[in-house]
Lab assay of single mutants.
Amino acid sequence: GKELVLALYDYQEKSPREVTMKKGDILTLLNSTNKDWWKVEVKATANDKTYERQGFVPAAYVKKL
């Protein structure tokens, strides 16, 4: 199945390749080969529509579930 990670801290994206997350968010882990930056998929809701974004977050800010 898919691997999930838990956001340990809030993170505000600093570039278009990154994604914003809030502490407590559960994210889908896409790639953890880089030890510093993990690629995740974030589900977000805006205007009653759910959309998914993929991007990088600092590996130290998340932990595998």
Rank of each mutant, 00 (worst) to 15 (best):
G24Q: 02
E3F: 11
K35E: 10
K63E: 12
E13L: 06
D10K: 03
R53V: 08
A59T: 05
K43P: 15
A7T: 03
P16G: 09
K2A: 12
K39P: 01
K39S: 07
A60K: 12
V5T: 02
K23F: 04
T20R: 05
L8G: 01
V40I: 05
E13F: 07
N31F: 06
V57C: 05
E18T: 07
E3L: 10
K22E: 05
L4H: 10
N34S: 08
N34H: 11
A59K: 06
M21L: 07
L29P: 00
L4I: 06
D10R: 03
T45K: 11
N31T: 07
R53M: 07
S15F: 05
G1A: 12
D36I: 13
E18Y: 05
A46R: 13
G55D: 02
E52F: 15
K22G: 04
T28Q: 09
K63A: 13
T20I: 03
A60D: 09
T45Q: 12
K64W: 07
K49M: 13
D36A: 08
L29T: 00
R17I: 12
D25M: 12
L30K: 05
N47Y: 11
V5A: 09
Y51T: 13
G55I: 04
K35H: 10
G24T: 01
E41P: 01
A46H: 14
K63P: 02
L6Y: 10
W37Q: 01
V57N: 01
T33R: 10
K35G: 08
I26E: 03
A44H: 14
E18H: 06
T50W: 10
N31W: 06
P58H: 02
E3N: 10
K49Y: 12
Y51W: 11
K14W: 03
K63I: 15
A7V: 09
R53Y: 07
N34P: 04
I26F: 05
N47G: 15
V57F: 01
T45V: 13
K49L: 13
K64M: 10
V42T: 15
K35A: 10
Q12A: 11
L6G: 02
T20N: 04
L65D: 02
L4Y: 15
V19E: 02
L27V: 06
K39H: 08
K39A: 07
Q54I: 14
Q54T: 11
L30P: 00
Q54N: 07
V57D: 02
R17C: 15
I26M: 05
L27N: 01
N47A: 11
T28I: 15
R53H: 06
Q54F: 07
W38S: 01
K2F: 13
G24L: 03
D25P: 00
A7Q: 00
S15P: 03
Y51H: 09
T45M: 11
E41N: 07
W37A: 02
T45R: 11
Y9P: 00
Y61I: 06
L29H: 02
D36K: 14
A46I: 15
K2D: 08
L29M: 02
A59M: 05
P16T: 09
A59F: 02
K22P: 00
L6C: 10
V42I: 13
L4V: 08
K63H: 09
T45P: 08
K35S: 12
D48K: 09
L27A: 06
Q12S: 10
K63M: 14
T45F: 14
R53S: 04
K63W: 08
I26K: 04
S15W: 06
D48L: 08
E52L: 15
L30T: 04
Y61E: 01
K39V: 15
S32T: 10
D25Y: 04
L8E: 03
N34E: 09
V42L: 11
N34V: 04
A60F: 08
G1M: 13
Q54R: 11
K64H: 08
E41H: 07
G1V: 14
P16A: 13
K2C: 13
E52H: 15
K49Q: 12
E13Q: 13
K39M: 15
W38R: 00
E13T: 07
K35T: 09
V19Q: 01
G55F: 08
N47I: 09
L30S: 02
L29K: 00
D25Q: 14
Y11H: 02
P16S: 12
W38V: 06
V19G: 02
V57Y: 00
E41F: 06
W38F: 06
T33P: 04
L27D: 00
G55C: 05
K63C: 15
T33D: 15
K49P: 10
K63T: 13
G24A: 02
R53L: 07
T45W: 11
L6I: 15
I26V: 12
P58M: 03
V19S: 02
M21Q: 01
